[in-house]
Computed example of a mutant assay.
Amino acid sequence: MKVMTVQSLALVAGEGKLPEEIVSRLAGNNQPPVVYALGGSPDRFRSLGAVEVIPLVSPDLDFLIGDVSKRGVKNMMLAGRVPKTLMYRPEILGESLGKLLQELESADDHSLLGAIVSAIESAGIMVMSYRDVIPDLLAPAGPVAGRAPTASEMEDINYARSVAKVLLPLSFGQTLAVYRRAVIAVEAMEGTDMMIRRAGDIVGRGVLVKMMREDQDERYDLPTVGPSTLKNMAEAGLACLAVEAGRTIVLCRKEFSHIAREAGIAVWGIS
């Protein structure tokens, strides 16, 4: 991994553990970033070695680009969850992002994130990939945690993959819940955890499959699973999780594996 000078990198950090992991590793590699914290407590990054933490009360592109440029920072990473429902609150978006949303032909995730990244890069700031920072967190092919899938679970995994290949180009359906080759629930704007709970309410059993569209930008938009994913699955009665090998981040691997074993959940990497 190329070593950058102090304050040569900014991280826009949404919710979740992924931004914390990235900050910790960058600081440990003598690349401490300036963190723009959008969601969660900003204090969590100070103890991890961030050069500075700037709380963002809203996804205001004008402020973000202006502040990063003022500091002379030329590289940026984007990581963590940012609720897409913020797009329905124009009063907090700032002029540039509000205008960008109005001009989009489609506000699906792929189009929206791509337009935001284009706006950042047009200001002379390069959006960097975080893959090289966390290579060991990417799911392997085959066994990831817990037991192996049963034959019927593998049939559901393969069925879900065939459905996902149709839905993903439309920029939704990144996660599917399937049971006996029938779709129980499809992830949309609500996010994976709420979708899992909905699947549990509908059937209370089945397989969860998480994939990404072929042309999804892996610099900043890799699917992520972690202990909370498995806890929600166990509560919902879903006993098997399939994720794309090399294209899915598995957080808190030790705890993740422990929960999978204790709950009897199969976690499998597919390609």
Rank of each mutant, 00 (worst) to 15 (best):
Y159V: 04
P143F: 13
I157E: 13
K2Y: 05
I65T: 13
G14H: 04
F256R: 08
Q31K: 00
A234T: 03
Q7D: 15
V82M: 04
D43K: 08
V23C: 12
L93M: 09
A177P: 03
G66E: 01
S271M: 06
M195F: 06
V73P: 03
S111V: 12
L61G: 02
R161I: 15
P227T: 05
W268Q: 00
L97P: 01
E255D: 14
V23R: 10
P140M: 15
A119Q: 07
G66Y: 01
A164Q: 14
I196C: 09
A160I: 11
P140G: 14
K2F: 09
N232V: 09
E187F: 01
E121T: 06
V34T: 13
V3Q: 13
D217V: 12
G49W: 10
G206A: 03
K231N: 07
K231Q: 09
V6L: 14
E218N: 03
P135I: 07
V250G: 01
A263G: 00
I92L: 12
I259N: 03
S41A: 13
I259M: 03
A79T: 02
L168I: 07
G72E: 02
P169R: 09
M211P: 00
L230S: 12
V163M: 10
R219L: 05
K254A: 15
I196Y: 07
E155L: 11
K2H: 12
S69K: 14
P59D: 09
E153F: 08
H110G: 03
Y179C: 14
I196Q: 09
Q7M: 13
D193S: 08
R89H: 13
E95Y: 11
A139S: 14
R161L: 15
Y159K: 03
R81N: 10
D156S: 13
H258Y: 10
E262T: 10
T5E: 15
Q31P: 00
G94Y: 03
A27Y: 07
V23A: 06
V186P: 01
